[in-house]
């Protein structure tokens, strides 16, 4: 019949401007970028030292961002790992309790992986919602950190290594920053170029389709939780080295900040949407914000308030939330009187 005449199904390939527009429209990091620009401008005006002392700012970004990067892997699959903060604490304590530094680091990282496996076990095999499974884990590990440490900070045996670790070793970059950058690149490559990482989007975005396409969904979920456990352990190791001691109560604000970074970064809590780069942007805005607040002499408590507010705003201004809010806000106040005679 009419093959020749065809039908217009695809889009026209446009010029440079429209290509750029398309590229921008495909990104999910809009909110993070907006916040970053806002924070950057405000900081520029009020406290430009946050930029001149950029090593400090970068250090803070690395502190906030590392755990968030690992967390993003899990959230992309529509799961949640609330146990990251106490994983950080436990792994730090485990590391400090072992006299041999190398052995301690290995043990800490191994514990992180095991925690990831256990979390994934409850989610995948037992079938508990990951919120609750990792919440139970959060409490359990918080206790475990106390038990292992005898409820007090554990001093690192090799203090020299710790002190050396706090010093710049690659130009102005401290090891923490280097590890953060490496972790960012590794995860960015993983979720954009590696098949397993790319399939995280399938697991989170359309799990049924992922099963049907023959993607090993369970294995992917295990991988995701192991990544977040490992990265949290890494953060614990870094903290312990820099402070030359492990605090069993460490990481209480890490949970808030890392969730805030990921959610601001456009990572959808129900999975399937977001990017590691977005999380980096989210962490960067929060880092600049914190440093600027500190420099202007704002107390830690107020900083927590600000970050809490940012997270609250981020989670309620999710595009999906906003779509439903129009309907429910209308019905909230309309009620039964919401109809009126016509004419």
């Amino acid at each position: 019949m009419s093959q020749a005449q065809g039908i217009q199904l695809g889009q026209e390939q446009g010029g440079l401007v429209s290509r750029i527009r398309v590229t921008i429209a495909r990104r999910t990091e809009g909110r993070a970028l907006a916040l970053l620009i806002l924070v950057a401008i405000a900081t520029w005006i009020t406290e430009p030292t946050a930029f001149t002392a950029w090593e400090v700012t970068l250090g803070r970004v690395a502190l906030i961002g590392l755990v968030a990067l690992g967390l993003t892997a899990v959230i992309l699959m529509g799961e949640l790992d609330l146990s990251v903060a106490s994983t950080l604490a436990v792994c730090g304590v485990v590391m400090a309790s072992i006299d041999n530094l190398a052995l301690g680091v290995v043990a800490a990282l191994a514990v992180g992986l095991i925690i990831g496996v256990v979390n994934a076990f409850f989610v995948v095999v037992v079938g508990i919602n990951s919120f609750i499974a990792s919440l139970g884990m959060l409490f359990f590990l918080r206790g475990a950190a106390f038990v292992i440490s005898n409820e007090e900070p554990v001093r690192l045996a090799s203090r020299d290594a710790g002190i050396a670790f706090g010093k710049p070793f690659l130009g102005p970059l401290t090891p923490r920053m280097v590890i953060f950058i490496v972790a960012f690149i590794a995860l960015q490559v993983f979720v954009t170029r590696v098949r397993a990482g790319r399939e995280f989007y399938a697991v989170g975005g359309n799990r049924e389709a992922a099963y049907d396409a023959g993607i090993p969904v369970r294995r992917r979920i295990f991988t995701g939780f192991m990544i977040s456990g490992f990265v949290a352990a890494l953060a614990g190791v870094i903290n312990t080295l820099e402070r030359t001691a492990a605090d069993p109560t460490a990481g209480s604000t890490v949970l808030l900040a890392s969730f805030a970074a990921a959610i601001i970064g456009g990572v959808l809590l129900t999975g399937g949407r977001g990017s590691i780069f977005g999380t980096l942007l989210g962490a960067t805005s929060l880092g600049i914000l914190q440093v600027a607040l500190t420099l202007t002499g704002v107390q830690v408590d107020v900083q927590n308030i600000v970050i809490g507010l940012v997270l609250l705003l981020a989670v309620i201004t999710d595009p999906n939330s906003l779509r439903t809010v129009v309907g429910s806000a209308r019905s909230l106040f309309q009620g039964r009187s919401g109809s009126h005679p016509v004419g």
Partner: peptide
């Protein structure tokens, strides 16, 4: 399928090869 079984955030190319993505050492 009757109901669409595509992954919304992945690209056209990625969806077409979903489950059979060509890889080398894990990399796409």
């Amino acid at each position: 399928h009757q109901e669409l079984s595509l992954v919304p955030e992945l690209t056209v190319a990625e969806n077409i090869v979903l489950g059979t993505t060509p890889v080398q050492a894990g990399f796409i």
